[in-house]
Design a protein around this nucleic acid. Structure first.
Lengths: 148, 148
DNA sequence: CACAGTGGGCAAGCTGCTTGAGTATGTAAG
DNA sequence: CTTACATACTCAAGCAGCTTGCCCACTGTG
């Protein structure tokens, strides 16, 4: 593969990903959740359905635990999550989505579906799911770094 | 398409893109260019081959012109780019890659090729180029936002 | 030759993450 | 049971990187 092809593939991935994230963000805001950013949404995906600890969230975002803790502070203050004592470890805390957090998560999912609709119309659902599976195989499970 | 499919597609795109960007960054650092970030690389891709103005760069990154100007300051100070008077407009300045800037760009391209090599081995070059073209069709030419 | 529009940059401010330090709890060895 | 070390979390301070507000220089239009 030519070097320039590798670069254009990178650019294409960046463009598509950024566009999709931006569309979802716009949709979430349109649903009335205008006090959060995409990063917070990445937290929600980690929290659903069974909750997680601050350390889990930090690993998921590729941040320090302190940063993750601050983000949880903010989400707690805004009513999206709540800290509970962890059932198995008194050092830890289990962070759970509140009802508001769940509503926001569902709004994000609906916005995502809306955002990919033109994609479905262009290449078809079957092809899109294949693309997803292919991407997962190519880059299995790293942290979701929301910034570079 | 189910809402959850849209979300998992988003997650897959984020994961693959982040992984690739991170691998390229690692490669660039390994080539000795350890004083720059992926954002600077996105600037380089816009500057090659004919240069660009600060306004062009700002649009490409989705930043303000002031932020783009600061980034150019830094790259100039580090010897990657230089500001020239613009041949057609005395208000503007044409920003060009220096020899060092070109070397870094080539290092980034080589690193990108290296980073996608396992992908080529997994799904084949033909398939990867098709994926690129598909992504470009799905999300044509927005700004490359390096953070959310 | 006014005047609105555009390209660029200085300075200050703020957001969001990191680094550093400290407390509470868990785990394991003697 | 005690000592020692590791883990989970958080408070506080620091700082990088982007924005907001302002300004000047040049363009092009009537």
């Amino acid at each position: 593969m030519k070097n320039s092809d590798a670069m254009s593939l990178t650019a294409a991935l960046l463009g598509a990903t950024g566009s999709l994230v931006q569309d979802i963000q716009t949709g979430v805001v349109a649903h009335g959740f205008d006090d959060i950013r995409p990063t917070h949404g990445f937290v929600f995906t980690r929290l659903a359905p069974d909750g997680a600890t601050v350390t889990d969230i930090a690993a998921h975002l590729g941040f320090t635990r302190q940063a993750a803790s601050q983000i949880v502070d903010e989400l707690e203050r805004k009513g999206y999550v709540e800290r509970r004592p962890h059932p198995d470890d008194a050092r830890s805390r289990l962070i759970l989505l509140t009802e508001r957090g769940w509503r926001c998560t569902r709004a994000a999912e609906a916005s995502a579906a809306e955002a990919v609709r033109p994609w479905v119309e262009m290449v078809g659902e079957r092809r899109l799911l294949a693309l997803r599976d292919e991407l997962v195989r190519l880059a299995p499970a790293g942290p979701i770094r929301p910034s570079w």
